[in-house]
Nucleic acid binder design. Structure first.
Lengths: 217, 217
DNA sequence: AGTAATTTTTAGTCTTGTCTAAAAATATTT
DNA sequence: AAATATTTTTAGACAAGACTAAAAATTACT
C-alpha cells in the first residue's frame, strides 16, 4: 500500500526529473513539497525499500518503473478530478487545485476509470496539462492555458482540438495558423479570456478558443 | 481543524446515540470503528478539549452542538458522494461504501454544495438513508432500501416520491397504500429488485418502484 | 590539491493515533 | 451488601512522518 505521504513524494520526484527518469536532489524535493531535507532522506529510503525509487546515498533519487506508474496514476487522478470540478461542478480553473490535491489520493482503480468515462476521456486538464492514460503515457502537447502568464514562455501552435468549419474560419480571420509562436500576456478571471501575442500581433482570445489551441513547448 | 480520525469518531458517536444526543459507551464506539477501548478514551478526551464532545469519565460521550454539526457534515458528504457514484458513475449501490468513506473526508464546503446542486439536491442516498442539509437536519423518513434484508425490521409506508398517475395506478393494482406495514425479505443484486412482505402478501418490486417508496421506521 | 561552502545524511526528539497490560470504577449477582 | 464480572481509564510502548542540530560527503574555489 502506498500512503498519502509517499504519493506526494512520488509526484514530486516525477515532476522534478523528467517523469522521474532523471535523478533529483534531496534539496529540490524538500523545496518542492515544502519540507526539510532530512525528512526527504527518510522518505526516499522508504520508497527505495518498497521498490518505488532508485536511491544511492548523496546521488539523488529517480523512480523505478513501478514508482513511475504509481506517480503517473496520482497525476492522472488529480487531472481528471480537475476536469470534473471545472466541467461538471462549475468551478473556475484557478480554484480547483487544492481540492484535486485531496481527491487524487482516493483509492479505487474502478473509480478513476469510471470518472474518465463519465468525463468522456479528456486528454487535458483545465490548466492545459495532459492527462496520463492507464499506462502512465501522455502526449507532450499542452493546451494554451499551460503557458504561465507573463513568464515569457512561448509555445508553437501544433494542434487544434475542434476542427469544425466555424472554428477554422475563426483562425483564418484572426491570422492564426499551425506553426505560429504564441506567448500568453494576461488572464482575465471574469470570463477566463487570455491576452496572447504572436510574432505579428497581440490579441484577446476567449476561454472557448483557448481550450482548442494546443502547443508544443 | 478536524482530522480524518476525529471525523470517524464523530460519525460513530453520531450514529450510536440518536444523532449524538445520547451518551454512548466507550466500548460501543470501539466495536463500531473496530479499535480498542483505550484508543477511544484517548480520542474522546481530545474531542472534549476541542469542544466537539461532552465527556464525563466512566459516563460515556455525547456530541456538543458543534460536534453534531461536524458529524452531520461528514455524513452529508458521504451520502452525496454515494449518490454521485451510483447516479453519475454507474456504480451499483452495494459497491460505493468504501469509496464514499474516503471521499467524505475531502475538505471544501464549496465542493459539497456544488456537488449537491449538480446532483439536483437529492434527499436520500442510494441505500435509502436521508441526506442531512447544510444545517445538519433531515427528515426521519427513509426510502425502502434501508430496511436491512431479513432482519425482521419493518416500516410504515408514509410517502411516495413519484405521484404520477401511472405510479399511483401501479400501487392500486398491487394493493399497496399509505399506512401499510412493509418488511424487506430479499435483495436481488442482478437488477436491484426487492422481495417485500406486507401484512397481506409477499411480492417482488423493481428498483424503480423501491426508489419511490418511503417509510417511517 | 587543499580549503571553504554547500548538500546530504545521521542521530535524536516530537506529535498523532494506535496498542497491550494493569489499575480503577461501575454493574451484576447471589 | 459483599463478591464477582465487566467496563473504562491509565501508563507505557510503538510506528509513521516530520523536525533540529550535528556530522559526513560532495562540490566549488583559489
Amino acid at each position: 500500500m502506498v500512503t498519502l505521504s509517499e504519493e506526494n513524494y512520488l509526484k514530486a520526484i516525477y515532476h522534478l526529473g523528467k517523469q522521474g527518469k532523471e535523478a533529483v536532489s534531496t534539496n529540490a524535493i524538500a523545496e518542492h513539497i515544502e519540507s526539510k531535507a532530512s525528512s526527504v532522506t527518510d522518505m526516499i529510503k522508504k520508497l527505495a525499500t518498497k521498490n518505488l525509487a532508485n536511491y544511492i546515498k548523496y546521488q539523488g533519487v529517480s523512480l523505478t518503473e513501478e514508482g513511475r506508474l504509481a506517480a503517473a496514476l496520482v497525476i492522472r487522478k488529480h487531472r481528471l478530478w480537475e476536469v470534473f470540478l471545472v466541467n461538471k461542478l462549475n468551478f473556475s480553473w484557478d480554484e480547483v487545485h487544492d481540492i484535486a490535491e485531496q481527491l487524487e489520493h482516493v483509492k479505487s482503480l474502478q473509480l478513476v476509470n469510471k470518472l474518465d468515462a463519465f468525463l468522456e476521456y479528456p486528454t487535458h486538464d483545465p490548466h492545459g496539462d495532459p492527462i496520463p492514460d492507464k499506462d502512465g503515457n501522455y502526449s507532450p502537447i499542452k493546451s494554451i492555458n499551460i503557458l504561465e502568464i507573463d513568464t515569457g514562455k512561448e509555445g508553437t501552435l501544433s494542434f487544434v482540438k475542434d476542427s469544425s468549419d466555424v472554428f477554422l474560419r475563426y483562425l483564418n480571420k484572426n491570422n492564426l495558423a499551425l506553426g505560429d509562436t504564441i506567448k500568453v500576456l494576461d488572464f482575465e478571471p471574469f470570463d477566463n479570456s487570455l491576452t496572447i501575442e504572436t510574432t505579428t500581433k497581440k490579441m484577446i482570445i476567449s476561454k472557448e478558443v483557448a481550450q482548442n489551441l494546443y502547443l508544443s513547448v
